[in-house]
């Protein structure tokens, strides 16, 4: 629980304080640089990509990396570098969508459970039941119900994120609710909704955001795995997991078709995990030496 224990320095200029703390650790610096590059590639893909990611060229099938095609071409002669940039966009978007939906619903459930003790048992037991199933099973079940596709992955990832966020949000909200200013707010007759929106939520946000940062990498990995199994994003849309799966047929003579998207996912998740860990260490006063 970090939100109320931040130092005066952190309160004054949180972003600058965080960056300065990250800057002291070389590994975090490299991770930050790598993550920024990957995000920029994804964001600027339509302008930076040298080729159309969907352009099939059967005369240039399965080429090894060269000056023309930096990462080579895939089984249909499409440029892997361009596809990876666009694929990165979809992969990151999947992760963010899941974190956003699961984070919003989870926060709402957690705050309600903390604010209205009567709903607490019902809501949190429900969350426990959802939590007792692994995310991948939700992925399989949702894909079986609505069919494979991007929507199935987002639903599955959001459902599995919701109970985790609900627990964190409930814990943070309970600590805020014990503060005097909340009692004062109640005493001057503030409406529940105003109290929640203006005082409880803003004081829980940082805890929830740190947790979501740590969760994003896992969500991306899981989304890519579902796509790799053929249950997520469907071809020809470039998505890193789907691209990796498409290379399996010719893995022995053109391994780059599978390896490049896979390594891109690895670098993305690795830099997120390193930064998430550093962020937690910086913000958690118990770990601060």
């Amino acid at each position: 629980m970090t939100s109320h224990a931040s130092t005066p320095a952190a309160d004054a200029r949180p972003a600058r304080y965080l960056l300065a703390a990250l800057g002291r650790d070389p590994v975090s610096c490299i991770a930050l640089a790598m993550l920024t590059t990957l995000f920029l590639c994804a964001a600027l893909a339509p302008w930076l990509a040298p080729y159309d990611p969907l352009q099939i060229n059967m005369s240039r099938v399965l080429q090894s990396p060269s000056l023309d095609h930096v990462f080579g071409t895939d089984g249909q002669g499409r440029d892997i570098f361009s596809r990876s940039m666009f694929g990165l966009r979809v992969t990151i978007m999947l992760g963010f969508a899941a974190i956003f939906v699961g984070g919003t619903i989870g926060t709402l459930v957690g705050l309600l459970a903390a604010f209205y003790p009567r709903t607490d048992t019902l809501l949190m037991r429900l969350m426990d039941i959802i939590l007792s199933f692994p995310a991948i099973l939700f992925g399989l079940a949702v894909a079986a119900i609505i069919g494979s596709g991007t929507t199935a992955v987002i639903i599955a990832l959001s459902v599995s994120t919701t109970p985790l966020v609900a627990r964190i949000a409930r814990g943070a909200a309970l600590m805020v609710l014990a503060q005097d200013y909340v009692s004062s707010g109640r005493a001057i007759g503030l409406h529940d909704w105003t109290l929640l929106r203006r005082y409880v939520l803003p004081n829980c946000v940082s805890t929830i955001v740190v947790f979501l940062t740590l969760r994003l990498g896992q969500a991306i990995l899981l989304g890519a795995s579902l796509s790799f199994l053929g249950l997520g994003t469907q071809p020809p849309t470039p998505e890193l997991g789907t691209m990796a799966a498409q290379g399996i047929g010719f893995f022995f003579f053109a391994p780059h078709v599978t390896l490049i998207p896979s390594v891109t996912i690895f670098l993305l998740v690795l830099s997120m995990n390193i930064l998430g860990d550093s962020l937690r260490d910086i913000l958690d006063p118990r770990l601060r030496s």
Binding site: L221, G241, A244, S262, I274
Partner: peptide, 14 residues
């Protein structure tokens, strides 16, 4: 940390 960041299919295919 690297281990938890690796996609299973990258390990498997390697």
């Amino acid at each position: 940390v690297a281990g938890v960041s690796l996609p299973v299919f990258l390990i498997g295919m390697t």
